[in-house]
Write a protein that binds this DNA or RNA. Structure first.
Lengths: 283, 283
DNA sequence: TCTTCCATGTGAGATTTTGCACAATGCCCG
DNA sequence: CGGGCATTGTGCAAAATCTCACATGGAAGA
């Protein structure tokens, strides 16, 4: 029977692709990963990786073993969730993953309420576009704008938010509508509902800035560069910006709350779920 | 994420029940198992075992974690099988589990043939009544007298063997049939087909020795104590014993060959399977 | 072509882990 | 009730492992 730590390091290597990346993911030195793989090769009697100068790649046997080891990682995460689920009380750390602006504009300002209600809860708030994997426990709770299809997850629709056009009052006052300049997403977000909606408004007018970062759009709009389509939770709270009404049908996007089934009943996680619901609807 | 070696030690403890038994199963010192469990408790923040004087028992949380860890063991064995299956060539060690007398009387004498055909194969032959677990890789190939129901196994009927009554020629010559004394299994084997068959023959005559060990039955029969029901592969090869014909319908038992699906295509395992088939039928 | 960056190999010292020996404790059995 | 017997706890020395630091060797970009 191989050493399970060897398997853990090897599985990380197989997933990450390089010794260094695996070492970073595991929080150890790359030399450790390399030596663990050597040990696994010795104990299995198989050559698992090709060591070429500067690159280390899986052999066919390595791929086979990695495939067999993947369920172990799966099971290890299940153990982690079971351990988390067994924690008594509402104390503990809960990791929330949410879209960046949602995290900073909606969740973060209200965290003080959660803290007052449950002093024992420590929050780790990750604003990221890349979707955190709940089954890998990169996050305990996640907010997403698309209903996910992964299995093993509990999904609830928390509510929705709308978009409007925003610019500085001065810009809207001085610029005739036919001369409006717009600020929008770049190609990577071309299919997002708000971008499609914006296109119907823009027509053949000019888009002077395309960026994938919403904060950048806000900064540009604030400076008087043009008009941006922003979610209400961002635009309405910004003293420098003012809504501009349009005749097009307004657009809304749903917010989905995700939590792994195994963690759904954990008191601290439930408290966070309640809190996030209030962020959307109540306070 | 907990240390996987901690999980391995804890899973072994949960399965074996005591630190010492787990240590034996893992081939390490009991202190190591104890310390690993302490480490796992620290990393999960849960009390996994109750340390009472002289006994260590799982807590409820411990049982939960052990349940979650069981699939990891399963996956680890799958990795072991994958490693075994990837071994090239017919070389390597193959472990055979078989009923004790079958191992010594049928398989062992013919192993020389296998060895001549495939010099690279090393055989580990385990004669044991307790059924070795193929999915735990306690054996690669097993012979059993009952068709198993476990999933994941490849099963083939190899053949069958018959039973007859045996005693010393002198005993059969000097003893009138109504005075025959019999040698049989004890209560633990009372339900075996050959024991049921023997009972129909014994009638109200005497059973002078009951034992669960077939070798003991042979030794007793050889000494002239009485008549035993023995498989032909044992009785016919014994110069001291002679068959005694009966009118009852003769009994046969099937021999099943078991191998894990993952190992079925391994050259060394295939060679052993072929060899075992020849043991039953051919040579 | 040269530079810079990143991935990997290697050795030494420090840390961690392990095995061993011994002690203590409670259970089984006569 | 008392003597084995097996299990568990503990301290220490040995062994194994990890990190750190440095060297190497390509690949991407200027």
């Amino acid at each position: 029977m191989p050493d399970w730590e060897d398997l853990r390091h090897f599985a990380a290597f197989a997933r990450e692709g390089t010794l260094s990346a695996a070492a970073r993911a595991l929080g150890v030195d790359h030399a450790t990963v390399a030596r663990r793989i050597v040990a696994l090769e010795a104990s299995t009697g198989l050559k698992l990786v090709d060591r070429r100068a500067r690159t280390t790649t899986l052999t066919d046997d390595g791929r086979r073993i990695a495939t067999a080891a993947a369920p172990m990682e799966e099971a290890a995460f299940a153990v982690g969730r079971a351990a988390r689920a067994a924690q008594p009380g509402v104390d503990g750390e809960v990791t929330i993953s949410a879209p960046p602006t949602f995290a900073s504009a909606v969740i973060a300002p209200r965290l003080i309420q959660l803290r007052q209600r449950h002093p024992g809860i420590r929050i780790k708030l990750i604003g990221e576009k890349r979707r955190a994997s709940l089954s890998r426990r990169e996050a305990d709770v996640a907010l997403r704008l698309l209903r996910p299809v992964e299995s093993g997850l509990f999904v609830r629709r928390l509510g929705s938010f709308g978009f409007s056009l925003y610019a500085t009052p001065a810009y809207l006052k001085d610029t005739p509508p036919h001369a409006f300049a717009f600020i929008g997403y770049d190609a990577t977000m071309a299919d997002s509902p708000q971008e499609v909606w914006l296109r119907t408004i823009v027509g053949d007018r000019e888009v002077v800035l395309r960026t994938n970062d919403l904060e950048t759009q806000i900064a540009a709009a604030r400076s008087g560069l043009g008009i941006a389509a922003l979610p209400h939770y961002l635009g309405d709270g910004d003293a420098c910006l003012q809504r501009h009404a349009v005749t097009q049908r307004p657009i809304r996007r749903d917010v989905w709350l995700l939590v792994h089934r195994d963690l759904r009943q954990v008191p601290a996680v439930r408290a966070v779920m309640t809190f996030l619901g209030e962020c959307m609807n109540g306070g």
